[in-house]
Amino acid sequence: MVQMIITGLLCGALLGFVMQRGRFCLTGGFRDMYLTKDNRMFYALLIAIAVQSVGVYTLVALEVIQISTGTLPLFAIILGSFIFGIGIVLAGGCATGTWYRAGEGLIGSWIALAGYILMSTIMKTGPLSPLNQKIQQPQLPTNSMADTLGINVWFLIALLLAVVGWIIYKEVTKPKVVIPTLKPKKTGLAHILFEKRWHPFLTALLVGLIAILAWPLSSATGRIAGLGITTPSANILQYLTTGDLAFINWGVFLVLGILVGSFVAAKASNEFRFRMPDVKTGLTSFTGGNLMGFGASLAGGCSIGNGLVMTALMTWQGWIALIFMILGTWTAVYFVFIRGRKEKKSKATVQTSITTA
């Protein structure tokens, strides 16, 4: 238990610290791909996936860990991931992003987190558990992309590395845009850690390394998995309502560690402050959190569990989920940002016409 607490909190704190300082938000990344045609955060995700993929399969080859990709509940993954993508826009952050933004003092993220944990619990062991299981029942026998294609998994990893290498080359050779910055208030390591803006690609490298570290640390406690957010989040409420210690595992301390690490980073960089949303925003955040919990439970993972971990394992589940998360995000962005703004502008024009008539 002591090992579980220490290593889980440590890994989670590292992840929360890095994500907070690097602003590693996949919700913003998916949204910006559609709104501003800015793909940098998506590219950063691909880097983190590639780093973790190399690390995990190296650990497998060295027999440090064992993995199983399981079967493929295709319909549940498509439906759940699409709903999850809608939810993260309404919640203002994905599952991990909600945890680390809660550590910054954002009350809206706490509200979204409450909805996320509540619905995840309801879907896994509550009244909606039968529905969850029924939708997940139709399953294809093979989830591994390498097994389906009849090739060694390292060929797929090599292809991903080639794509990532090309992306990095294209990005670093772009003309540099000089952005004026204020004179640093800190010096040395303190300036780098708590003041200097982190490059998304550096953040992605660190996230990938932490994701690798999670595998042996988690496996050492009997939990054969890497980073995961949805089930551990539900485990917290499951334990609090039942008192069953079986719900306490390495993943629980991982998500609590994210909160701690983010808080430390935010306080040290003077970015922590309590921010209370208005009623409408609070209700939207809670609704988004519920959609996140519903969708992630159906799909068998969130933007981290599917979008980062299962993609790195080269599974159909991970890459299909990632595609439909992005499509869900874009759908919500269209109705919330684009169509919503058009309707507001149209109403304002009509009101002005009436006033001047």
Rank of each mutant, 00 (worst) to 15 (best):
A48Y: 01
L205D: 09
A91S: 09
G328D: 12
K176R: 11
W198I: 06
V89F: 10
G289W: 03
S269C: 05
V51I: 15
A265I: 00
I111A: 10
Y239W: 10
L35F: 01
W99D: 00
I192F: 02
K174S: 10
P175M: 04
S297H: 05
W319S: 04
I212S: 01
A158Q: 12
L291E: 05
L113C: 02
P200D: 08
W166L: 15
Q52D: 07
T125A: 08
F17H: 01
A204H: 00
V336T: 15
F324E: 00
F84K: 09
L161A: 10
F24R: 06
I107G: 07
R197S: 01
L118R: 14
G257W: 10
K185T: 15
M292C: 09
G87H: 09
A265C: 06
K186H: 04
I88K: 05
V260Y: 00
S303L: 09
F24D: 04
S303N: 15
L308R: 12
M314E: 02
L46K: 01
E195L: 05
G188K: 12
E195D: 02
S81K: 13
K280F: 00
V177H: 12
P127L: 14
A61V: 12
S285A: 15
A61D: 13
T71K: 13
R40Q: 13
K345N: 15
G103W: 01
A312E: 02
F30L: 14
T242D: 03
T7H: 07
L256D: 01
I86L: 10
G126V: 00
G188W: 00
T355F: 12
H191E: 04
M41T: 11
F30R: 09
I77T: 04
L182Q: 13
D147L: 03
S129Y: 01
S353L: 14
V163D: 11
V89M: 09
L217N: 05
G8R: 03
I320L: 02
S353C: 07
G243S: 05
V163R: 11
L62H: 05
L118S: 08
T71Y: 11
L213P: 02
A158K: 11
L45N: 04
L182G: 15
L106Q: 11
T287R: 13
K176V: 15
R21K: 13
A146D: 07
I210H: 03
G29A: 14
G70K: 09
C11N: 09
V89P: 04
M33P: 01
T27H: 06
P216S: 11
S297R: 05
L245R: 06
R197K: 06
A44N: 01
I88P: 02
Y334A: 01
S219V: 11
G222Y: 03
K344H: 12
C11D: 00
L245W: 02
L298H: 03
V336L: 13
T27L: 08
G301C: 14
F75N: 03
W166S: 14
S303Y: 14
I229P: 00
M292K: 11
I167F: 05
G105I: 03
V260I: 02
Y116L: 15
F30N: 13
M310I: 10
A266C: 13
A50V: 08
A13V: 06
T281Y: 03
T221S: 02
A61L: 12
K347F: 08
L160W: 06
G105P: 08
A146R: 07
L45K: 04
Q136K: 12
L327T: 14
M314R: 12
I157A: 06
F274Q: 07
T281R: 12
A299W: 07
T58W: 00
I6Y: 14
L59Y: 04
G288Y: 13
T284D: 01
